[in-house]
Design a protein around this nucleic acid. Sequence first.
RNA 1: GCCGAGGUAGCAGAGCGGCCAAAUGCACGGGACUGUAAAUCCCGCGCCCGAAAGGGCUACCCAGGUUCGAAUCCUGGCCUCGGCA
Length: 310
Amino acid sequence: MNKLLVITGPTATGKTVLGLRLAKKYHGEILSADSRQVYKGMDIGTGKDINNFQFTIFNFKKQGEFTYGFYDVGGVKVWGLDIVEPGYPFNVSDYVNYANAILGFVWEQGKLPIIVGGTGQYIKELLLPSETLHLPPDEKLREELNSFTVAQLQERLQRINGAKWEQMNQSDRQNSRRLIRAIEVATAGSDSVQSPTRQERGPEADILLVGLTAPSPVLYERIDKRVEQRFTAGMEEERKKLSGRKLPNTIGYRGETATEWKFAEHAYARRQMTYLKHQLPRIVWFDVTQDSWSAKLERQVGKWYTTKTV
RNA sequence: GCCGAGGUAGCAGAGCGGCCAAAUGCACGGGACUGUAAAUCCCGCGCCCGAAAGGGCUACCCAGGUUCGAAUCCUGGCCUCGGCA
């Protein structure tokens, strides 16, 4: 049975370094799971620090506006980066399609795919796809709904799908983004024969999920240091280069000061932990401030890697 | 030394006699998440008891005072900032 290793955790815990090391050790290829590093040109601010490595476009499969290619990082192939232009509304569904293509390709070569990234939703949906994952947005409907107040959205949803409304929790009921999607799903479901959902199963594989974490104070310190480095690495220039272009709403690209950026990133790390802990409970966690965490981790990975599964 | 402004929760900053344990923002803690996820949204945030409703205690620089009642008014002190010397 094919194997798939997943390395996740909040930002600034050293996922990339670990991924590269394990890729070398196990003859693997890395597949990034990062919702912002998929954008071309957003490099310094997203921590895509591979400017000196070569990017090779690999057109083994043509699909719309995606660029399939990899960076060669010291002999290790890294996929999942620079897929689209910043104006493209890349989303989970796109990621799952892209990732499945890469996984198949890597396995075909008899190599080990290693997913590395902190976008919990991308990993979760790849592994455990939900029914409406591939139900596309209805731009016209969204445009109309965008001018609605939360109360109006609530009313509309209650009218067209009361059951869905009942299921929603207090927080989602105040979340216009969620309300709009719920209305969108309900609308599609009612006027098409069957919802155009393409049910998908997660990859057939022996999967090991490891998570890297650290106590908040340590994490915050690391984040702060990274933000400082990004400014000295030329973040201002990158911002200037991208100014005027349509960018995805991203920390660090909204003109924040260093302090604002740090705080936003702290909160982001917290959200990541909450998501990963609860949505992907199978993760085996390693605190990178503990002694010999990496030896323990490698032992675990080694054991998993050599265990035959049918 | 004189004149003016001011000292409020971790920070910034409202309040200017009762409705104030004190708006709001930030920070911080917890949570949600079925195609925007580095996004979006919810809850908490003086201390103690309680599941909650609620109750108790200590509070708005310090010390006095006025008042049924003071973060809010008065007096003195200490400190900070701006202007003049």
